[in-house]
């Protein structure tokens, strides 16, 4: 892989709360190449959203703190940017779409105006140019009759349509990176497929890199090129998408994959779940965070925290027993 477009290096995000320090993101590193989709999977609270909010500079500090880490984008560390400089990056070079299309649009502003505002802000277009660009974008994301829809309000559109508008908003200035935080979770399955297809085809046309955050492995399988699995604020396994599904090495990834129903497996076999619960971030076990739920845990897992290490071509795992198979 050539030099990555975005490189997140040992990122830590802590939240100072009444009863101590929550390490929501605890030393996460990954890189995102040009035109690539990196899927970040994990349960709620595993730090996947927080780490991406750090990338786009939307963490409120305080309560959040970033004690260490670098986010290298175009030879510069985004963490050193001032708020003003960062707001020039947001929407222009790095954009984000959110989980809830129902509430992510301003309810009292026509959708066309919302899109026009963004291109006028970043690209300095005139009102008329912006309107033309908006029509073009609505067309691009597959909104039927854009010239009518452009003056409609969010409540007049369906959820799928709204997510298309959100995508149009995010891609309005042709950003280099699109962060998609559970973009399809709130949608029907059929609409989900359409939105994912749309994102993939737009990625192909525009060469955008996508950081896809989800807890849905099906979405990952369909869209991502590489996958990072997060657990309790750390990346436990990182690999190309095929490798993750065919040769998962971390017990947590293996557990996740076993817990999805599969059409090619015998019906009688029960789905296996991962025993126990996600530990509270305020009360992590020493050593490996997964130790209490891990079927393969050994003494060492309780003592030392495993480092993430390469075990194959582009495949990294943080587990003491990864070598044992």
């Amino acid at each position: 892989m050539s030099a990555p477009l975005l490189q997140v290096d040992d990122l830590r995000v802590h939240f100072r709360v009444d009863d101590g320090l929550l390490k929501a993101v605890d030393g996460v590193s990954y890189e995102l190449g040009q035109g690539e989709t990196l899927g970040i999977v994990g349960e709620s609270g595993s730090g996947k959203t927080v780490s991406s909010l750090a990338v786009i500079g939307l963490l409120e500090r305080p309560p959040a703190e970033i004690p260490s880490g670098r986010i290298i984008f175009g030879d510069e560390d985004l963490l050193t940017y001032s708020e003003n400089r960062m707001s020039d990056v947001r929407g222009r070079r790095i954009s984000m779409i959110f989980q809830e299309p129902m509430t992510s649009l301003n309810p009292v502003m026509a959708i066309g105006l919302q899109i026009s505002e963004v291109v006028r802000r970043h690209l300095g277009m005139s009102k008329r140019q912006a309107r033309e660009r908006t029509l073009e974008l609505l067309n691009l994301v597959g909104i039927p009759e854009p010239s009518k829809r452009i003056d409609e309000y969010p409540h007049q559109l369906s959820g799928g349509m709204r997510q298309r508008v959100m995508i149009a908003l995010a891609l309005a200035c042709e950003p280099m990176i699109l962060i998609a935080d559970e973009p399809t979770t709130a949608l029907d399955v059929t609409i989900q497929a359409q939105i994912l297809e749309l994102m993939a085809s737009l990625q192909e046309k525009l060469g955008t890199s996508i950081l896809l955050i989800t807890h849905d492995l099906a979405v990952i399988a369909e869209t991502a090129h590489r996958v990072a699995v997060m657990y309790a604020g750390r990346i436990v396994e990182k690999a190309p998408v095929k490798e993750i599904f065919q040769n998962p090495r971390h017990p947590y990834t293996q557990g996740l994959l076993r817990s999805i129903p599969r059409i090619d497996r015998e019906r009688e076999k029960r789905l296996t779940e991962i025993p126990g619960f996600v530990p509270s971030l305020a009360d992590l076990p020493s050593g490996c965070a997964f130790v209490d739920r891990c079927p393969q845990a050994i003494d060492r897992c309780r003592r030392d925290t495993p480092m993430i290490e390469a075990i194959g071509e582009g495949h990294q795992v943080s587990c003491w027993r990864a070598e044992d198979g």
């Binding site: 992510s104 301003n106 908003l169």
Partner: peptide, 16 residues
């Protein structure tokens, strides 16, 4: 609300 965070994510200024 989400749409305010979305506006931040699209680079809107405080005054806007």
């Amino acid at each position: 609300q989400d749409f305010i965070q979305a506006a931040h994510a699209l680079g809107a200024s405080g005054a806007r």
